[in-house]
C-alpha cells in the first residue's frame, strides 16, 4: 500500500441553529461527528450516504471551506486546519474541488478562458501570457473540449460540458488530491458515463487521488477502490469497495445495497429487499446509542444505550455494529436467491 496522502482524525463540524422559541436553548446539529479515515496516494476513496448524512459538509470541512469544530486533517502529514494563512494558500494548490452543480459553480459572467486563468493569477503561476494561454488550451484538450470553448460563457454549454470546465479548473494547478462532490449526479446517464470515464483517464494520466462524495451506490461501486458509508454524521462502515459491497458488515449498508434497483429485470425479480421503516431521524435529535437502531432489523435492547465505535471486522474492513457479523449473514450476494 502506498503512503497516506490524507488522514482525517476525529473530525467534527457542528452547526448552531436558531432556538425554537425566542428564549429557548440554542440547538446544535452535529453534521459531521467524529469522522476518521485515511486516503492513500492513488486511491479513489468514496464517501456515500443519503441526503443529510453530512457527506458534503465533511468534504467542505476537509478543504477548510467550513471551520472544523474538532479534529485534525493531515495532508502529507501536515495539519491543514492549523496551518497559517500563507502556507494554507500554498497547500490549496494541491487540494482542489469539483462541485455538484455545474450550473452554479461557474461564474456566468466569465468566459471559459477567464475561469481557467483564475487559478494561475491567484497563485501567481505562469506569469507569461503566452505560456499561460498554452497551458489553458492544453487543459481544455485534456478534458475534451474544443479550443473554441475559450471565448464562450458557461450558459452556452450543456451540463456535461460545464462539468468538464469545472474539472479543467480543478486540474489547472496540478493538484494531488481532488475532492469530487457529487460530480455526476446532475447529469444524464449517457453524459454521466462520459464524465466518469474522463475522471478515470485523468486519474491515470496525472496520478491523482480522488475523494469521491456521492449518494449513488452504483457510481461509487464503479469508480472507488475504497468506500466509507455515512449515516447521521458518522462513518458506520468502511473498507475495500469490493468486499464492502459483496459482504456488508453494517445493517445500514446492507439495507442501502438492497434498496438500489439493479438494471437487470431477471435479477430484480429474484432479489429480496430489506425495506427500512420510516425516514432518517432529524440530526437535531439523533437517536440515543447506535443512531441506526430505530430502523435496524437486528437491533437488540442494548443498541439504544450503546454507541458502537468502528471496529475492524476483517483486515482493512471496519464496521460500527457489535451485532455484526449478523446472525443470518445476509450479504448483498446472499440476498439473491439461487
Amino acid at each position: 500500500m502506498s503512503a497516506p496522502l490524507l488522514e482525517v482524525k476525529g473530525l467534527a463540524k457542528h452547526f448552531e441553529v436558531p432556538a425554537e422559541t425566542f428564549l429557548g436553548p440554542k440547538r446544535r446539529i452535529a453534521a459531521v461527528d467524529g469522522v476518521s479515515f485515511t486516503v492513500f496516494k492513488g486511491d479513489t476513496f468514496g464517501i456515500v450516504g443519503e441526503s443529510g448524512c453530512g457527506k458534503t459538509t465533511l468534504g467542505r470541512t476537509i478543504l477548510k471551506l467550513e471551520r472544523a469544530t474538532a479534529g485534525q486533517v493531515l495532508f502529507e502529514g501536515r495539519d491543514v486546519l492549523a496551518l497559517p494563512g500563507g502556507e494554507l494558500r500554498r497547500l490549496r494548490r494541491d487540494i482542489q474541488i469539483v462541485f455538484q452543480d455545474p450550473f452554479s459553480s461557474l461564474d456566468p459572467r466569465m468566459t471559459v478562458a477567464r475561469i481557467l486563468e483564475e487559478p494561475f493569477s491567484i497563485h501567481g503561476i505562469l506569469p507569461d501570457r503566452a505560456q499561460r494561454r498554452r497551458r489553458i488550451e492544453q487543459l481544455l484538450d485534456v478534458v475534451g473540449l474544443p479550443k473554441a470553448a475559450l471565448e464562450r460563457h458557461p450558459h452556452m454549454f450543456s451540463g456535461g460540458q460545464r462539468q468538464r470546465v469545472g474539472i479543467a479548473r480543478a486540474l489547472a494547478l496540478n493538484p494531488k488530491l481532488v475532492v469530487l462532490d457529487e460530480p455526476v449526479s446532475a447529469l444524464d446517464v449517457s453524459i454521466q458515463a462520459q464524465v466518469l470515464n474522463l475522471l478515470q483517464d485523468l486519474q491515470k494520466e496525472f496520478s491523482l487521488t480522488y475523494l469521491f462524495i456521492a449518494h449513488d451506490f452504483s457510481v461509487v461501486r464503479h469508480l472507488c477502490n475504497r468506500t466509507a458509508v455515512m449515516y447521521l454524521g458518522r462513518i458506520v462502515e468502511h473498507g475495500e469497495t469490493q468486499t464492502l459491497f459483496a459482504d456488508p458488515q453494517h445493517p445500514y449498508t446492507e439495507a442501502l445495497l438492497s434498496a438500489v434497483p439493479v438494471p437487470d429485470p431477471a435479477l430484480e425479480k429474484r432479489r429480496k429487499r430489506i425495506l427500512l421503516a420510516g425516514d432518517v431521524p432529524s440530526p437535531l435529535a439523533p437517536p440515543s446509542g447506535c443512531r441506526f437502531h430505530p430502523r435496524c432489523r437486528y437491533a437488540r435492547p442494548d443498541c439504544a444505550a450503546l454507541d458502537p465505535a468502528l471496529a475492524e471486522v476483517r483486515p482493512a474492513h471496519w464496521a460500527a455494529c457489535p451485532v455484526a457479523p449478523f446472525a443470518d449473514a445476509a450479504s448483498a450476494a446472499a440476498l439473491i436467491e439461487a
Binding site: S190, A193, N197, S218, R221, V262, P263
Partner: peptide, 21 residues
C-alpha cells in the same frame, strides 16, 4: 444507454459512453 449505466453487481472496467449530446 444500457452500457452506460454502472451496476452494483457487475464491475465494468469502463462504461460505454455515448459521444456527443
Amino acid at each position: 444507454l444500457l452500457g452506460s449505466v454502472p451496476s452494483i453487481y457487475l464491475r465494468k472496467d469502463r462504461l460505454a459512453s455515448i459521444p456527443g449530446q
